[in-house]
Computed example of a mutant assay.
Amino acid sequence: MAEPLRSDWRLYCFRLALVLTGSISLVGCESSAPQSMSAWFACSSKSGDQLVLGHLDFVESRGQFRLQFFGQDVFYNVKRISPQGGSVSGTAVFQGSLTGETKAAPFDFVYDRHEQRLKLDGVWNECDVLQDRSLVYLPVDETQTADPTEQQ
């Protein structure tokens, strides 16, 4: 390996130290705090009429939402999310419902990772960390069976 120029020696040593400690920054000398690979959150509207439970996987670029609004309980899949600075945006599409809805319009959203808030229909909703992660997913209907002898 060629010896670096003397004027670059400090920068070379600094970067070498970063590589050896596992805190590498090849683009420049600034480093950033590690970011979570996903977010689990529960958000409510200011009026309290709407509850949104969500999971966004920033590595896989997908996620799920559950919206509870005026008696409806609807689940959505997020097929692709796009980073925008400290936020991510995407579109959620209907997956299913616990209250009988068979379709629902897709919606766009923005999730601010740093402020933990979700923007729906132009309105920011404050979010908390979701403790029970199972609430985000559409439950499997265990009353349906694949056994043809039970279906008459």
Rank of each mutant, 00 (worst) to 15 (best):
Q68C: 00
G54K: 00
T102K: 11
F70P: 04
L53R: 15
G96H: 07
D49Y: 02
R66K: 00
T102Q: 11
G85V: 08
V27W: 00
Q95G: 10
S31W: 10
D73N: 09
A33D: 09
Q72R: 02
C43L: 02
V74H: 02
S87T: 11
V78I: 10
G90A: 07
L56C: 08
E101Y: 05
S97D: 09
Q68K: 02
W40V: 05
S87I: 06
F69E: 04
V52G: 09
T99C: 06
F41Q: 14
P83I: 09
Y76F: 15
K103V: 12
G86R: 04
S82A: 01
G90V: 05
P83E: 13
S31Q: 15
Q50E: 06
F69G: 07
E60Q: 13
V74W: 06
V52A: 13
S45L: 14
S89Q: 15
D49T: 08
S89T: 15
S38E: 11
S97R: 06
S44D: 10
L51D: 11
H55G: 07
G48H: 01
E30K: 01
S31V: 13
Y76W: 07
C43V: 03
G90I: 03
A92H: 00
F65K: 08
F41C: 15
L53A: 14
Q64A: 05
L67G: 05
K103F: 13
G86E: 00
S61H: 05
T102G: 06
R62D: 08
K103T: 14
G48D: 08
S47I: 09
F94G: 12
S25T: 14
S45G: 14
S45M: 04
G85Y: 03
R62M: 12
F65T: 00
F41T: 15
T91H: 12
V88F: 01
L53T: 15
S25W: 11
V59D: 14
S31C: 13
D49F: 00
L53E: 15
E30T: 09
V59K: 12
S47N: 13
L98K: 00
L67D: 03
V59W: 12
Q64D: 01
G86K: 10
A42W: 02
I81W: 07
G48F: 04
V59G: 07
Q35T: 13
E60F: 01
P34I: 02
D73C: 06
S82Y: 08
S61C: 03
Q35R: 13
S36Y: 07
C43S: 07
A92D: 05
S32E: 04
E30D: 00
S47E: 07
F65M: 01
G71N: 08
P34G: 04
W40R: 09
E60T: 05
L51Y: 01
F94S: 12
V27N: 09
F65A: 07
T91G: 05
Q35V: 12
K103E: 15
R80C: 11
A39Q: 13
G86T: 02
S89C: 15
T99S: 08
S89W: 10
S44N: 12
Q84C: 04
H55C: 11
A92S: 07
G90K: 10
S89M: 13
T99F: 00
S82L: 06
T99Q: 00
L98P: 01
F94E: 10
R66S: 09
Q35M: 12
Q35L: 12
L56P: 05
S87W: 04
R80I: 07
A92T: 05
L56G: 11
F41G: 15
S82V: 02
S25K: 12
S31A: 13
G28W: 08
M37T: 10
G96C: 14
